[in-house]
Design a protein around this nucleic acid. Structure first.
Lengths: 184, 184
DNA sequence: CCTGTTAGGTTTCCTCGGGGAACCCGACTC
DNA sequence: GAGTCGGGTTCCCCGAGGAAACCTAACAGG
């Protein structure tokens, strides 16, 4: 498959997707955040190939999203736990879950609900503006160039994929071009 | 590859991941929501194989996330636009972008920022409780079984998210345990 | 002591989908 | 009638995903 690496693209969505845009990673994180930390438990719960699970866990540990810890010495047993970086993927999982609930839950309603321990209520989390607290949607937001990207006047709204290129030779390099450059 | 289909799992994360858990789909949605709707523009911008792009677009149209529309008759030209279902994936993209910004943006800062048109401010969106409006995190939420889904005894749901952090010995949380928690 | 069993992977082999690039077709347009 | 542009489709290769067997260390039971 040689999945195209997106890690070097100046777009945070692309960088997050490079790690998270995989069929299993989201579900592994769901399970680990839910407290399933042992290899065999994950393998059994997800029905994932053990080889793939080992590879994904290694990648996640490598990225600092999970840590592998020995929780018992006799016999030696390890498990995986989320780091702070990993725990913050919770928001992504919630967003995915909300969307799945909204569009795929049948008559019976969603398979699970979230309870906010601070207020004690089970309520659907929403994406809210960090300034005014009102919900944000695709319709009521626009994207501005940020400090970390070189964005021209005509740049599109949501996420300049390749804006941070400083190479004057390539005006609009594609992901593949960027990658070829990298491996060269 | 024969990617395992997750569509029939009683978990909204799995169902959303079945569509969205793909390296390209998130980026295609980003571009379409940003107003890039033409096939060639998408192909150029993403550097994706045209074959894969055609397949992804067909899938997204099939799922009702995008629509293919003729926007001009002479010569005939089509483009892709997000449906309401597709527009709501914006929240997922925001969550991914936030996370990428937080953990991968360099010294320069994030490549882009979101402006909330309603209040006019550029602020980081946050996942907030739909009831009290306070931020929700992995640490201050728990998951309850919901009305829908084929959840039987032993089926796990997402959460309680931090149970196993403080108690590594805790067994996999099951629905029964979650229900005990709820009634407690 | 010998035979499980359990946790936590690693190896082997096969298949199938992603990547690259060429090709195609209708509709302009010079 | 030659070129170009939008919007794909076709062909071939290769490497990642899946299944299942195998491996090792540490006990557990008889």
């Amino acid at each position: 498959m040689t999945r195209t690496s997106l890690a070097d693209v100046a777009c945070s969505i692309a960088r997050a997707t490079d790690l998270f845009g995989d069929a299993w990673t989201a579900l592994i994180m769901r399970d680990v955040l839910a407290g399933i930390g042992r290899f065999d438990d994950l393998a059994h719960d997800l029905g994932i190939s053990r080889k793939i699970l080992a590879a994904r866990l290694a990648r996640l540990v490598d990225e600092g999203v999970l840590v592998r810890e020995r929780y018992q010495d006799h016999p030696p047993r390890e498990h995986y736990r989320a780091t702070e970086k990993g725990a913050e993927l919770h928001a992504v999982l919630l967003a995915l879950m909300n969307w799945g609930d909204r569009w795929y839950a049948g008559e019976a309603g969603p398979p699970a609900r979230i309870r906010h321990l601070a207020c004690g209520h089970a309520a659907t989390p929403v994406m809210a503006c960090g300034h005014c607290g009102e919900p944000v949607t695709a319709a009521n937001t626009t994207e501005l160039p940020g400090p970390g990207g070189r964005i021209g006047p005509g740049t599109r709204v949501l996420g300049p994929l390749l804006a941070a290129r400083t190479d004057p030779e390539a005006a609009t390099p594609t992901v593949q071009q960027a990658q070829r450059q990298m491996s060269a």
